[in-house]
Amino acid sequence: MYTQGLDAAGREPAPPDAASDAEREARFQARVDAEEKIEPKDWMPEAYRRTLIRQISQHAHSEIVGMLPEGNWITRAPSLLRKTILMAKVQDEGGHGAYLYAAAETLGVSREELVDQLLDGRAKYSSIFNYPTLTWADIGAIGWLVDGAAIMNQIPLCRCSYGPYARAMVRICKEESFHQRQGFEIMLKLARGATAQKNMAQDALNRWWWPSLMMFGPSDVDSKHSAQSMRWKIKRFSNDELRQKFVDFTAPQAEFLGLAVPDPELAWDESTQHYRFGSIDWREFEDVLKGHGPCNRERLEARRKAHEDGRWVREAAVAHAAKRAATARVAA
C-alpha cells in the first residue's frame, strides 16, 4: 500500500525548508486536527512514525499468531462445513497480517525486520493468543468474544489519521464481522444442544471472558501511550470506554445464549445505562505479556518452526524466478 518503493525515482528527498521541527509539527498537528489523512510520503514527527510502526506491527503479529489457536481445531472440526468455515477464517487472519505488514512497510520498515522482531521475542502481540483452545466450544468463544473485542477496537481505527492503516482496517473490519457471527452461531448451536454441549459452551465462556476484557489493554489511568495517540488521532476512544462498550454489547448476548458470564458483579446499572462489572486481574495480564501465559513458548516455537520450515520454499521461489527470467531472455 503506497509502499516505500514509490521513492524509486532515485531522487534525493526534498531539502529541509527553513521551517523548524516545531513549526512542522504544528502544521502536522493542524492537519490531523482538521481530520486530514497523513500519507506515507508526508512529513510526520518521528515519534508518530515510531508509534505507528509499533502499533501496526503488533497488530500484524497478533493476526499471524492468532492463526495458531484456531488452526489447532481445523482437523477436528465437527463437520465438513465447520471445517471449511474455520479454514476460511484462519486464511483471513493470514490475510489481515499481510495487509497490516504492508501498511507498516509504508513507514520505512521492512517486513523481514518486523518478522525477525516477532521471532526473536522483541515484539509483542495480543495477550489473548497465549491461551489454549481446549475444546471445540473455544472456537465459538474466540469468534464471538475475541473477534468481537477486536472489532470494537478496530472500527475506530478505520478513521485513524494514518491513511494506509485506516484503509487496511476498513478491509479487515468487513471480514471480522463474518468471524464474530460464525463464532456466535457455534455458541448458539452448543447452548441449544445436549447438556454436555451446553456445559462445554459455558466452560469456554468461563475461560475466555476475562482474557477478552484484557484485550482492550490497561485501564486508562495506567495506559502509557493513550494521551498522545488520542492527540494524533491514531486512537479515538480510551481503553476503558471501549471495554465498557464491549461489556454492554456482550452481556445481553450471553443472556440470549442462556450462559452465565463468570462475573458475580456483572449487573445493569439503570442510572448510568451501562453494565457494572468486576475488577480485572491485571497481574495475570502483565504475566501473560511478559511471556508467562499458558502458551507463550509454544506459540513462538510454532512460528519459528514455520519460518524455518518455509525457508527452502522461499529460496526455491527465487531460484525458479531467476531461471524463468533467464529462459525468457534467451528466447527473446
Binding site: G5, D7, A8, G10, E105, S110, E112, A321
Partner: peptide, 12 residues
C-alpha cells in the same frame, strides 16, 4: 538500490 528494495530476490 532503493530504500526498502529487497536484495534477496524478492520484490514488492
Amino acid at each position: 538500490e532503493h530504500e526498502g528494495e529487497r536484495t534477496d530476490g524478492w520484490a514488492l
